[in-house]
Design a protein around this nucleic acid. Structure first.
Length: 225
DNA sequence: ACCCAGGTGTTTC
DNA sequence: GAAACACATGGG
C-alpha cells in the first residue's frame, strides 16, 4: 500500500485530528518534550500545573528552582530528566534567540532542525514535532507507531528514523498541513488498532494487505526485497 | 498485578 | 551499529 492511500483511508475513518493541542508555539514545544514515552493525559496534568503556577514561560522556567519544576511536571513521568531538558531548552532560547521561540522557529528548516537536535533531550521525533506543530515546517514526524504500521502493512521495513522519514517525504508531497494530519492519524491508528497487544491487527480499518506476522524466517537467505 | 505510553541518552556487546 | 538499560507516572 502506498502512503497516500493509507492517508486517505485513515482520514476517511478518523477524520480531522486538530493537532497539536496547545495555544502557543512554546506550549507545543513544552508538550513535545513532556510527552516523550508518556501518555498525553499525563502531559495535560503537567502543563496544567505549569499554567496554574504561571510557569509556562521561557524566563520563568530557565530561572526556576529545579526541584520546584520537577514537582510541577511530575505527572508526566521521567520528571527529573525532563525538568533538566526544559530548563536547558529555555536557557538556549534565551541565550541565542532573545527568549523568543518564534525567533528560533524563524530560520531555515534544516538549520533550525540541526540546532534543536543539539539540545539535550531533543531527539529526532521531538525536534520534528516542534518544527511541524509549533513552526509549521513541512517535516515528517516518525514515531514508534509509524514504524510499526509501516512494518505490519508491508509498506516499508526499517526501524531507522531517518530512513522512514525519508520514505514518507519522498512519497508524500512536502506539505505541513498534510504531514500534520498524517502523523496525528498514524498515532490514532497506532493507539486504537495497530497496537502491540493486537498483533494480528484485528478490526483494523486499513489492514488490507497487513502482513503481520511479517515473514516466516528463512534460514540462510538474507536478501531484502 | 501487569503492560503500556506520541523517546532520549548511556552503556555494552 | 544494534541491543539492552535507565528513566517514572497514571490509566486500562
Amino acid at each position: 500500500m502506498q502512503p497516500m492511500i493509507l492517508y486517505k483511508k485513515l482520514f476517511d475513518h478518523f477524520g480531522l485530528q486538530h493537532w497539536w493541542p496547545g495555544n502557543s508555539s512554546f506550549e507545543i514545544a513544552v508538550g513535545a518534550i513532556l510527552t516523550q514515552q508518556t501518555a498525553w493525559t499525563n502531559v495535560e496534568m503537567a502543563i496544567e500545573n505549569l499554567k496554574n503556577a504561571k510557569m509556562l514561560d521561557t524566563e520563568k522556567i530557565a530561572s526556576s528552582d529545579l526541584k520546584y519544576l520537577e514537582e510541577l511536571i511530575r505527572p508526566s513521568g521521567f520528571f527529573r530528566q525532563k525538568a533538566g531538558y526544559l530548563k536547558n531548552f529555555c536557557q538556549q532560547i534565551i541565550d541565542n534567540h532573545d527568549g523568543s521561540i518564534e525567533k528560533l522557529l524563524g530560520g531555515e528548516l534544516q538549520s533550525v532542525r540541526k540546532e534543536l537536535l543539539a539540545f539535550r533531550g531533543i531527539g529526532p521525533e521531538t525536534a520534528d514535532s516542534i518544527l511541524l506543530y509549533a513552526g509549521n515546517y513541512p517535516t515528517f514526524v516518525v514515531d514508534a507507531y509509524t514504524i510499526r504500521i509501516c512494518q505490519r502493512t508491508g509498506m516499508f521495513d526499517s526501524k531507522k528514523y531517518d530512513e522512514v522519514k525519508a520514505f514518507f517525504e519522498e512519497k508524500v508531497k512536502l506539505d505541513a498541513q498534510v504531514y500534520n494530519e498524517f502523523h496525528a492519524l498514524l498515532v490514532e491508528l497506532g493507539k486504537n488498532h495497530c497496537t502491540s497487544s493486537n498483533p494480528k491487527c484485528e478490526n483494523c480499518p486499513v489492514n488490507n494487505g497487513c502482513q503481520y506476522p511479517r515473514r516466516t524466517v528463512q534460514s540462510g537467505s538474507q536478501s531484502q526485497r
